[in-house]
């Protein structure tokens, strides 16, 4: 009975087209994963095996590709770049969540003149592409003496993002107004209402925002390149791997792939553990490209 109902809900019965479509989909899914499988296999090859790529499996896994990368004879250990990435990404996530939740709370719950103008500006600013603001931002950070530090990657996150505000505001608006009133009668101030009543109810959208921020910051290339520049002590993992591909290891693509695996590994772990939140974050991120 249930299957009849299910069939009815989905339109037609299982037909030839359904089977063909499913096969195409599964082939597509393989094509989504294959490059990553290839990357992991390639990172365990010797240089010779890598360049003669007709064999997919390495004869003997070269784990020393990783040890070489993690503990180089000269230069900084790879862990340094990992920690830089974690620091920048982590602080940006905290900053974005804190500032956006506070600003969105005020815009959704407190009435004061001009708040519609602020919200309207946030909506419009989403359409202003980064290339227009990038150069002046660089010059402003230069004046502030922030170039070659992590500040330009972290501080702006604490100044809220238009996207985060718009995303969270809609969730705040679903919480009943009576809760604020009741708390006010008990003598709670706005900050208490925000931190004690609203934040616990907002856990799920806040995690969504944190994940979207992670995704953006962990993968970022352009801003770290511009703002950190040549100060290699502060490089994030992406910058280090870029250096591998252009610098001393130019002819060692297998080491580069090992670096790529290390960059993707935390993403895979997070992806598997927080998969439902990823799915939710895509569903709510309609405006984000």
């Amino acid at each position: 009975m249930a299957s009849i109902a299910a069939n009815k809900r989905n339109g037609t019965k299982i037909g030839v087209s359904t089977i063909i479509f499913t096969i195409i989909l599964l082939l597509g899914a393989i094509s989504m994963l294959l490059p990553f499988v290839w990357m992991i296999l390639a990172s365990l090859k010797t240089n010779g095996e890598f360049l003669n790529a007709f064999k997919w499996l390495p004869a003997a896994p070269q784990w020393e590709n990783y040890t070489r990368l993690l503990f180089p004879e000269k230069g900084h250990p790879f862990m340094l770049y990992f920690f830089n990435s974690v620091k920048v990404t982590g602080l940006a996530m905290i900053g974005t969540v804190l500032s956006c939740s506070l600003v969105a709370f005020a815009l959704a719950r407190i009435s004061f003149p001009g708040k519609n103008i602020v919200f309207g500006f946030a909506v419009i600013s989403i359409f202003l592409p980064s290339q227009v603001t990038m150069i002046p931002q660089f010059l402003i950070f230069k004046e502030l003496g922030w170039l070659g530090t992590h500040y330009p990657l972290i501080i702006p996150a604490f100044l809220a993002s238009a996207f985060g505000i718009i995303l969270l505001r809609q969730f705040y608006r679903t919480i009943p107004k009576e809760m604020d009133e009741a708390a006010k009668v008990d003598g709670a101030g706005w900050f208490t209402i925000y931190s004690r009543i609203h934040l616990p109810l907002m856990i799920s959208p806040l995690i969504t925002l944190a994940i979207l921020t992670f995704q953006e910051k962990w993968a970022e290339i352009l801003y770290p390149m511009i703002f950190i520049g040549k100060n290699s002590d502060l490089w994030t993992m992406v910058l280090k791997i870029r250096d591998l591909s252009t610098g001393q290891y130019n002819s060692r693509p297998e080491l580069e792939m090992a670096g790529n695996v290390l960059l993707v590994l935390p993403v895979i772990i997070l992806f598997i553990t927080a998969q439902p939140y990823f799915v939710k974050s895509i569903a709510t991120s309609g405006v984000k490209g």
């Binding site: 290839w38 962990w218 993968a219 290339i221 992406v238 870029r242 792939m257 790529n260 993403v267 992806f271």
Partner: peptide, 14 residues
């Protein structure tokens, strides 16, 4: 959805 997450640096290189 997975390929959308890693950096273009990884994807591009691969």
């Amino acid at each position: 959805y997975f390929p959308a997450i890693p950096s273009w640096f990884v994807i591009g290189m691969v």
